[in-house]
Design a protein around this nucleic acid. Structure first.
Lengths: 127, 127
DNA sequence: CTTGACCTTCCAGTGACTGGAAGGCCCATG
DNA sequence: CATGGGCCTTCCAGTCACTGGAAGGTCAAG
């Protein structure tokens, strides 16, 4: 398979796949003409990466997860620990966004949004 | 005031304030020795920026908001529109994170997290 | 033989800082 | 007067995970 094929099959842009090769997450072979050749296993890895990234795991975490995935003797504790930490991160981010949302939605509601210059949003920011 | 003073007073790191000068969000004067001198108005702007950033507004939005803040003839409609869009962005981000959180928390719960290699998290990623 | 869809590499930019090096300035103490 | 410590300065590089674009090679169809 060429890069376009695995891009379609994995849902990742070709650019991203090249980048993943750059940072050694996948290591496709090369044809005589220089084109990358992807095996089924490469595609499987790319799909794994796409899913892990979609869950918000950082690239370096994806690298770790992929290594654990391929290590048939790993303990699931390590995976769970990594995932639990990531879940905590997500919860923190959500909490932060919720707090922004709270403040901002109050301000937006209080703002008339007409041609007049009086604006509770700017008033608040200018405290 | 020197940069250290406004850093303390605004809560922004000195590095960040220098960066804000770089991108022309503030324009402090200079003393003969090259040190930046910040006026009360500069400090006021920095506090405005700190609050706007804390609400998650992008730097370019902050620039716009600051300009509107200083334009005493602005219409509040423009401010409200910008804020409403930002609120939508926040909502989208929250939704995305919630969906990650959902999936991931189910997986984490399903994972024994012991010495055995069987792991629902990796099984899911490897689909 | 040309066209168009692939593919390649390399370089630069994104956003909003952040860290660190190398060096100047200022004040107080010995 | 020297020195030490805490300010301040500039400049460069790195972060994260791509993304865009230029310049050019390859391949199959018509």
């Amino acid at each position: 398979m060429n890069i376009g094929d695995v891009a379609t099959a994995s849902g990742l842009p070709a650019k991203t796949i090249r980048y993943y090769e750059d940072i050694a997450l996948v290591t496709p072979k090369r044809e005589a003409n220089g084109y990358r050749v992807f095996s089924e296993n490469d595609l499987h890895k790319l799909r794994f990466l796409a899913r892990a990234r979609a869950l918000g795991f950082a690239i370096e975490d994806c690298r770790t997860l992929l290594a654990l995935y391929e290590d048939k003797g790993r303990s699931s504790a390590e995976v769970k620990e990594l995932s639990r930490k990531h879940l905590d991160d997500i919860d923190q981010k959500i909490a932060q966004l919720q707090s922004m949302r709270n403040t901002l939605s109050h301000l937006v509601e209080a703002c008339a949004g007409d041609h007049r210059p009086d604006c509770p949003i700017l008033n608040d920011l200018g405290q």
